[in-house]
Design a binder for these strands. Structure first.
Length: 661
DNA sequence: GAGCACTGC
């Protein structure tokens, strides 16, 4: 390994790091930056006063890279070289080089904001711009001011715009290390095809007929089954999503077909809805895809778009995750750090999320009681930030603890954390089977999907976590085991937060009936105060409250039942709004009017201007921001005419009851 | 009555 390109730059790297607190290292695939950079600094004594931390966006990468480095150092994993990922800490007092996911480093920073145990922090794969890496970039900028004398920060990436990061860190130096890829010939087609799926199929057959041996990797937006039956000889056709850009390395690939598209999840802060859209990839992504052809020998990349489209239409870089996600959790995290002069609208991000998105986050946090009407974090909010969950789910756990149904809530929340991986990938053959077996699973008494998830886990518990039971019921074993791990971790954190011995045991009793779930549903209602929907008067469509008014439906996969008149509950809370063919609420739970009334009152007095620190002295940049806020109509709920009086009456009853107490 | 890429604490 001594001849990796990066080693030839050792002197230059060491010299630059010595003179500067922050250094950007651009290294193409095959440069050895992830494995060699920490070893170089280790050799030069940088681990004497602290640990060298290397972050990775993915767990597998943290584990595999650390294993390779341990091997090169000739030590066992967990000794001088170790890793830390969720559920698994393979480090010891001897550890000097520590690989960890960026999520783990963020969590460590919550309890030790100065990260004193580290002398060097290397943020690897920064070009991927994961939400966590972006937060860390902002935190590092603050941290080097406090720890100027004893902390070195290195930002490394494959194709990141080095100049931009350098400017972000007060014009820090940028080192470029060449990679060891084989040349890849790029071929563009002359005009955009009508169908990129069809075009990629044609191109694949074309390569198969004309070109010498070598596997073909095809980047599409989903696993479309268009390549069956397989060709008669042994050439492999690998159809892949963007997973092969980063997570997956396929050996033997010589040809890449790049459709130029990717399916991307986007959050709309004004409607609270997620959507999955097929969008054009960025130049960075196109380069990444082409690079996959040159890992073992010279290769070819066929791009199913003209070069003019690449140059003129493609974005330089993918829109960072931070600009495509709901930021409630992120904002709560930053608020809980108690950074001096912390104003969330002024936090220094490499690419700032929109003001609208930040205000949406503040609004949500206010509704779940994590911040007060002035935008300051509450003691409840502090506890919520300690839980590795979305704010609505942390709020549910804390409320459940008050209502003596923590054990049930822990199960529901854990099941939701792995929900997508529970059911097996749909295929024609298993579809019937799944439907059949699902009918054998509990139905949540018609109260909704959260209750069903609880019942499923409790049944599994009663079989003593029997793997065969999962298989019989077509539940993914890995998913269920993951749920069990999450539940254990959350139980421990809850014990710590409440400083008490809690009853977190999964219930073993035979369940009585609907009444059994009342407290749990109330806790869910309070936790999901930001995800509450009201049914329309005469039909089963719903309107999410607190967002721009849009009509949504309960997802057809839901087990929520209607009453004798065919009507669904007046109010439900939902886990997620997702736009596919239409806007749907996924995972809903029926809630009662009397729990909803205080939330409606809160929605009424919502004042985003105050939440975003409207009283503070704005600087020029912020001036512009606040003026748009002032003009904007506050998105409080306007109940439909004839229901307004009903809500008012219920609210008065509620307040009267409260007064009596 | 739908049908959804990928991560992570």
């Amino acid at each position: 390994m001594g001849d990796l390109p990066i080693v030839r730059f050792e002197e230059k790297i060491v010299e630059t790091v010595k003179e500067n607190p922050v250094v950007v290292v651009i290294g193409e695939t095959g440069s050895g930056k992830s494995t060699q950079l920490p070893q170089i600094l280790y050799r030069r004594g940088y681990a004497k006063s602290g640990i060298i931390a290397v972050t990775q966006p993915r767990r597998v990468a943290a584990v595999s890279v650390s294993r390779r480095v341990a091997q090169e150092q000739n030590v066992r994993i967990g000794e001088e070289v170790g890793y830390a990922i969720r559920f698994e800490d393979r480090t010891s007092e001897k550890t000097r080089i520590k690989y960890l996911t960026d999520g783990v480093l963020l969590r460590e920073s919550l309890f030790n904001p100065e990260l004193n145990q580290y002398s060097v922090i290397i943020l690897d794969e920064a070009h991927e711009r994961s939400l966590n890496t972006d937060i860390l970039l902002g935190l590092m900028k603050r941290l080097i001011k406090w720890r100027h004398s004893n902390l070195k920060v290195l930002i490394t990436s494959a194709t990141l715009d080095g100049g931009k990061v350098s400017r972000f860190f007060s014009d820090c130096p940028v080192l470029t290390v060449p990679g060891e890829l084989f040349p890849v010939e790029i071929v563009h087609i002359s005009e955009l095809p009508k169908s990129y799926v069809e075009a990629s199929l044609k191109k694949a057959i074309d390569i198969h007929v004309r070109e010498p041996e070598g596997d073909i990797l095809i980047f599409l937006t989903g696993q479309v089954r268009v390549f069956s039956p397989p060709p008669p000889n042994c050439r492999r056709f690998i159809v892949s999503t963007n997973i092969a850009e980063t997570s997956l390395t396929v050996d033997g690939v010589v040809y890449v077909i790049d459709s130029g598209y990717v399916k991307q999840r986007q959050y709309n802060p004004s409607t609270g809805m997620y959507s999955l859209e097929v969008v054009q990839i960025s130049k960075v992504q196109a380069k990444q895809r082409a690079g996959r052809a040159g890992r073992t020998r010279p290769g070819k990349c066929y791009r199913l778009y003209p070069s003019t489209v690449y140059h003129d239409d493609f974005l330089d870089a993918t829109i960072p995750e931070i600009q495509r996600s709901s930021l409630a959790g992120t904002v709560l995290y930053l608020k809980s750090l108690d950074l001096a002069d912390m104003d969330i609208l002024k936090f220094d991000f490499l690419d700032s999320p929109s003001v609208e998105s930040l205000e949406d986050a503040l609004k949500q946090l206010y509704l779940v009681d994590a911040i007060d009407e002035n935008g300051s974090i509450t003691s409840l909010g502090r506890k919520m930030a300690e839980l590795p969950l979305e704010p609505s789910l942390s709020r549910t756990l804390l409320e459940a603890n008050e209502l003596d149904c923590l054990s049930q809530a822990l199960t529901v929340v854990s099941m939701l954390s792995a929900e997508t991986t529970l059911l097996p990938a749909p295929s024609k053959s298993s579809e019937k089977k799944r439907r059949h077996t699902l009918s054998n699973l509990p139905d949540g008494f018609g109260l909704g999907d959260h209750i069903q998830l609880l019942q499923i886990y409790e049944q599994w518990y009663q079989t003593d976590y029997n793997i065969d039971w999962c298989k019989e019921n077509n539940l993914q074993v890995r998913g269920m085991v993951f749920v069990r791990d999450v539940r254990k971790q959350l139980s421990q954190i809850m014990q710590k937060i409440t400083k008490g011995s809690l009853d977190v045991q999964t219930s073993n009793r035979r369940r009585g009936g609907k009444q059994e779930y009342k407290s749990l549903r109330k806790a869910l209602c309070i936790g999901y105060a930001n995800q509450l929907a009201e049914r329309m008067i005469r039909h089963n469509g719903y309107r999410p409250l607190g967002f721009k008014s849009e009509l949504v439906q309960v997802h057809p996969s839901s087990v929520l039942k209607s009453d004798e008149d065919g009507m669904l509950p007046n109010y439900v809370v939902y886990h997620e709004l997702i736009v596919t063919s239409r806007p749907f609420m996924r995972n809903v739970c029926a809630v009662e009017m009397r729990w909803v009334v205080p939330i409606l009152a809160k929605l009424d007095k919502l004042n985003v201007f105050k939440l975003s620190g409207g009283s503070s002295q704005p600087d020029n940049q912020i001036q512009e921001v606040t003026s748009t806020v002032e003009k904007k109509e506050i998105t409080a709920v306007q109940p439909p005419e004839d229901r307004a009086s009903m809500i008012q009456a219920a609210r008065e009853r509620f307040l009267a009851r409260k007064g009596q107490k």
